[in-house]
Amino acid sequence: MTEQDTAPSAAAADPALRDRLVDSIRELLPHVLKREVAEVTADTELMDALGLSSTTGLELVLELEERLELEISVEELGRDDFGTVGSLADYVAGNLLTEA
């Protein structure tokens, strides 16, 4: 058994999918952060502005999976992907293992 590089299964997302992911991330953030969160947009910084940690970030991705009944490849998920709500939505849209 060896590690193989995994390529994203989906190309850059269509705008509707990205919007849907941004909405879902916005709705899940209070649950994951366990507090109310003020106005959130695609440009909101997850770590710097909201205090998301690497662990709560991963929790957010797995919660997103359950809510949208999607399977997301987390192999290539890196720190940069947690930059903003929008960058995380882009990662998820580009790394779906099931049809959105």
């Binding site: 662990t55 991963l58 929790e59 797995l62 919660e63 987390v74 998920l77």
Partner: peptide, 10 residues
């Protein structure tokens, strides 16, 4: 359960 899931999945 979520913390364990992160260990397994991620």
């Amino acid at each position: 359960g979520m913390q364990a899931k992160i260990f397994r999945r991620y």
